[in-house]
């Protein structure tokens, strides 16, 4: 076995994933190769070196702090939390959309057409003027005709060629 192969199969060797024959081959190579033996030793030394990175001790009140945080979050939900907690309610959304559509259709169908309202009011005013004018003409005509009466009995006409 060559040194390059040893380094490539070192992980399987480390994990014990090799067959007895392969393992024996590697160990035989290691016995006779100073470089590979040094490599294996360094690799083992690395794992021991990493253990010098100590653990840190958490504060004693980690769990009570956690529940305090949970309570604080519940007490002040805030707008952002409200948005985060907002869950889409498709049934409600569908119902609202239906109501909206029905409202538009209903009010659209029964609301008065006000597009010509200005002209309508103008027409009404004109009509009133015409009626008044008509009445005035009728009265005037009647007055004029009354000179030549009689219209009902002719008692007022007299003199030459007049009615009595």
């Amino acid at each position: 076995m060559e040194c390059r192969e040893i380094k490539e199969t070192l992980i399987e060797y480390t994990l014990g994933d090799l067959s007895h024959v392969e393992k024996a081959n590697i160990e035989s190579h290691l016995d006779g190769c100073i470089e590979c033996r040094g490599f294996v030793s360094e690799s083992k030394g690395l794992w021991s070196l990493l253990e010098t990175w100590d653990e840190v001790e958490p504060s004693g009140d980690f769990i009570s702090n956690f529940w305090d945080n949970v309570e604080e979050t519940k007490a002040s939900p805030g707008f952002l939390n409200w948005i985060q907690n907002l869950k889409p309610n498709w049934t409600l959304a569908g119902a609202m959309a239906s109501i909206f559509l029905v409202s538009i259709i209903t009010f659209g169908a029964f609301s008065p057409d006000t597009r010509n309202s200005i002209f309508m009011s103008a027409d009404e005013r004109d009509e009133l003027i015409l009626i008044e004018l008509d009445n005035a003409i009728s009265r005037e005509t009647a007055d004029v005709l009354s000179i030549y009466g009689p219209w009902d009995g002719g008692s007022e006409i007299n003199g030459n060629g007049g009615f009595n």
Binding site: T14, E27, L30, R37, V40, S41, E42, K44, G45, S48
Partner: peptide, 8 residues
């Protein structure tokens, strides 16, 4: 530091 025989 170099360690003893092989195993890792």
């Amino acid at each position: 530091m170099e360690e003893g025989k092989y195993g890792m």
